[in-house]
Amino acid sequence: MSELKKYKELALGGNIEKGGTAVDFKTGDWRSSRPVYNPENCIQCLFCWVYCPDSAVILKDGKVAGFNLEHCKGCGICAHECPGKKKVKAIVMEEEVK
C-alpha cells in the first residue's frame, strides 16, 4: 500500500499521462483456459500473433516463442485461427482447472 499516491499527487481527472501503460496492468488472472503451444505443428504463419487482441503472443526473432500469460485472457482466437500442420493445430486451449 505504501506506493499508492496521495490525492494531490495524481494527474487531473485520473488521466494516465503516457501511452503504452497497459503492459503494466496484469489482466491474465481472468483466464479460464490457456493456450498450449506445440512447436512441432507450427508453420510460423503468425496468424496467432496477428489475431491476438491483447499482444499476448511472444515473438522471438520473428518466430512464435510462446504466450504471455500475464495478459492472455484465454479467448481462444489464436487456437481458432491456427491452421497447424497437416490439419493438426499448433495451439490448443486447455482448461485452467486441469
Partner: peptide, 21 residues
C-alpha cells in the same frame, strides 16, 4: 506527440482520491 489515457478504471485503490481531488 503526447499520448495519454483518459477514463481509466479506478477501483478501491484510487477512485476515492480522484473524487477527493
Amino acid at each position: 506527440k503526447k499520448p495519454f489515457t483518459i477514463g481509466a478504471i479506478n477501483l478501491t485503490d484510487y477512485y476515492f482520491e480522484h473524487r477527493r481531488a
